[in-house]
C-alpha cells in the first residue's frame, strides 16, 4: 500500500475526470460534492495508523482508475472500433498504398 500516490493527487485526479465528463458545470454535480466531502472527512489528523483511511484511499484510487480507464477505452473505441467496416481506399491507406485510379488512354476513350 505504500506505493499508492498521495490522497491529494488522487482527489485532483478524480475531479479532473469529473470535469472531463460534465464540462464546466461539474462543480454543481452530485459526485463533485460527494468526493470533496469524503476527502475532507477522511483527512489524516495524526501520524496514527488508520485502517479506514486506507480503505477510503483504496476506494478513491479504484474510482479514479474506473473513470480514467473508461474514458481512455471509449476514446480508443471511437478511434479504432466504433465506425464499422472500412472502405477499400481506407484499408489500402492503412498499409501505405493507394487504390489504382481508372486508367485512361487506349481502350478507354469514348
Amino acid at each position: 500500500m505504500a506505493s499508492l500516490s498521495s490522497p491529494l493527487r488522487v482527489c485532483r485526479g478524480i475531479l479532473k475526470e469529473l470535469r472531463a465528463i460534465q464540462g464546466q458545470s461539474y462543480k454543481q454535480s452530485l459526485a463533485y460534492n460527494y468526493v470533496i466531502d469524503q476527502f475532507r472527512k477522511n483527512k489524516v489528523t495524526g501520524e496514527r495508523y488508520c485502517r479506514a483511511q486506507q480503505e477510503a484511499h483504496h476506494a478513491s484510487l479504484t474510482y479514479l482508475c474506473l473513470l480514467a480507464s473508461t474514458r481512455n477505452h471509449l476514446a480508443l473505441h471511437n478511434l479504432y472500433h466504433g465506425k464499422g467496416e472500412r472502405s477499400p481506399e481506407e484499408v489500402a491507406g492503412l498499409v501505405g498504398l493507394r487504390v489504382p485510379t481508372q486508367p485512361g488512354g487506349k481502350g478507354w476513350e469514348k
Partner: peptide, 17 residues
C-alpha cells in the same frame, strides 16, 4: 494500441468497477 491498450483499459475499467 488498438488491441493491447484497448483490452487493457477495458479490463481495468471492468476490474475497477
Amino acid at each position: 494500441e488498438w488491441a493491447h491498450d484497448y483490452d487493457m483499459y477495458e479490463l481495468r475499467a471492468r476490474a475497477a468497477a
